[in-house]
Design a protein around this nucleic acid. Structure first.
Lengths: 127, 127
DNA sequence: GCTCGGTTTCGACGGTTATCGAAACCGAAG
DNA sequence: CTTCGGTTTCGATAACCGTCGAAACCGAGC
């Protein structure tokens, strides 16, 4: 295998994080699971990436072209590409090439898992 | 003000992130908001911190002593303290000193905000 | 007051990461 | 086949981060 479609590096360990996770307020995470999920949070832990993620997730047809993402930021195109690769590696987005353009779409699976994990149980607290 | 209670550094900008955020699948984040929330995700983006967070959030009485956290990890006590400070600065946990021990508890507010942000709308997708 | 255990802070070291520009890649269209 | 625009990769640089041990801090108890 040389490099069939480098775009589909499709989440190495996030695949392992595929099966899990009640709210962390209900149950302590196992170290291994914590490591997998921390990688996903880390991917969201950059302002540019988080904004990219929000643009992709809220894109009209469920997908958006890199050419529509890049102009919204003050960083270079190569930097945007790098951040998109990070999101892809984390399993948060998917990429597909059509003609000259590459379209990204969100992967709801992992997002939902993270959302569940963070959901506070039933408790109330404004602070 | 010299240093009244260094433990309550109580979230600098997370206070700004206090008011917001429909699911990102519904609306693109503004750059400023993205920066604030990215800081919170970044705090969760380390395996040790995420596991710490889960231990604190799932603690029986809603709180847990540092002395009960430290022995669960293979890193030094000073490193644990450093990570706890990071979680505190992100507005994810609160600390209170009682006698010789310091107790940490989760701040559900920010957790809930992050959970909402990540919630995929109504869509279905297993991939 | 002095000591002691729990916790945080300080300073340093090594590895990671965000960023850039240049180069490579890849379809499409001359 | 050559060119061209969009995108990714490569290599380099500077800033950041996780970790440690030592030192400082802080109540409690002697």
């Amino acid at each position: 295998m040389s490099k069939p479609a480098a775009l589909t590096l499709a989440a190495p360990d996030p695949a392992a994080a595929q099966q899990c996770c009640p709210p962390m307020s209900q149950q302590r995470l196992e170290p291994g699971t914590a490591a997998d999920l921390a990688a996903a949070f880390k991917a969201l832990g950059d302002p540019v990436r988080l904004e990219l993620m929000s643009m992709i997730a809220s894109a009209p047809g469920g997908e958006i072209c890199v050419c529509d993402l890049t102009p919204s930021f003050q960083v270079s195109g190569s930097t945007i590409s790098h951040h998109l690769k990070t999101l892809r590696a984390a399993g948060l987005v998917d990429a597909e090439r059509r003609a000259s353009w590459v379209y990204y779409r969100a992967r709801p699976g992992l997002m939902r898992r993270l959302a569940t994990l963070l959901t506070p149980d039933a408790e109330e607290a404004t602070s």
